[in-house]
Design a protein around this nucleic acid. Structure first.
Length: 215
DNA sequence: ACCCAGGTGTTTC
DNA sequence: GAAACACATGGG
């Protein structure tokens, strides 16, 4: 990883994003457990779909750890159906709920989180940052895309990208919280797949988002 | 009728 | 080991 990108550049991007969008107040959840449920449900899925699934859990009074741990599999599947991959995710949620009931420390320990089926590095780090307040930078598809477009790094490796940010930012949970939220905000606000025109982009004149690279 | 979304686990070369 | 595939719904 070339150290050629300075801390100042990375911190300057953060400042511009924060200036432009303001504080994001993440994670959008009312409790740590709801946050964890959202983290599983949002895997490769649009957040609007996750909202539907969470709303259906809430309205049926089945969002609690105990409910999700004990609900019949088919019932849980139907409740979270709008979030997609509903069979996989029902199983993952149930396993996670049971693990947390057995040992609440799971929520705070990276190795324990990663040993849960269906919890990979991004989900684990999201939980550590947003549910446990630990200063761990979360890397997602947007973070990689942004870094690539800005020429900051070429790698796709999760931990290499994470190290890039860890090396250039003070170790503060509040900062990592906002930064990641702002990157997601940027992705939603600016060039999405069908919107190649991007005015007043806080990142650069030529917008850093849009999955396809335009010619 | 495509393409995409706040990944992860399994299978295949 | 990397690369390809399966998983599924809903919105643009």
């Amino acid at each position: 990883m070339p150290p050629s990108i300075s801390k100042a550049r990375v911190q300057s991007l953060y400042k511009r994003l924060h200036q432009h969008f303001g504080p994001q107040h993440w994670w959008p959840a009312e409790s740590s457990w709801e946050m964890m449920v959202g983290a599983i449900l949002t895997q490769n899925t649009a957040w609007t779909n996750v909202e539907k699934a969470i709303a259906s859990l809430k309205s049926s009074q089945t969002l609690s750890i105990y409910s999700i741990a004990t609900l019949p599999r088919r019932r849980l599947e139907q409740l979270i159906r709008p979030s997609g991959y509903f069979r996989q995710k029902a199983r993952r949620l149930r396993l996670l709920a049971r693990a947390v009931l057995k040992d609440p420390c799971v929520t705070k320990d990276r190795a324990l989180l990663l040993s849960q089926h269906g919890v990979g590095p991004e989900t684990a780090d999201s939980i550590l940052l947003y549910a446990s307040g630990q200063p761990i930078f979360v890397v997602d598809a947007y973070t990689r895309r942004l870094g690539h477009r800005l020429g900051w790094f070429k790698t796709d490796d999760y931990h290499e990208v994470q190290r890039f940010f860890h090396d250039r930012l003070p170790r503060e949970a509040a900062l990592y919280n906002e930064f990641h939220a702002l990157i997601v905000r940027l992705a939603k606000a600016h060039c999405t797949s069908r919107n190649p025109k991007c005015r007043s982009c806080p990142v650069q004149a030529r917008c850093a988002f849009g999955k396809r690279t335009r010619s």
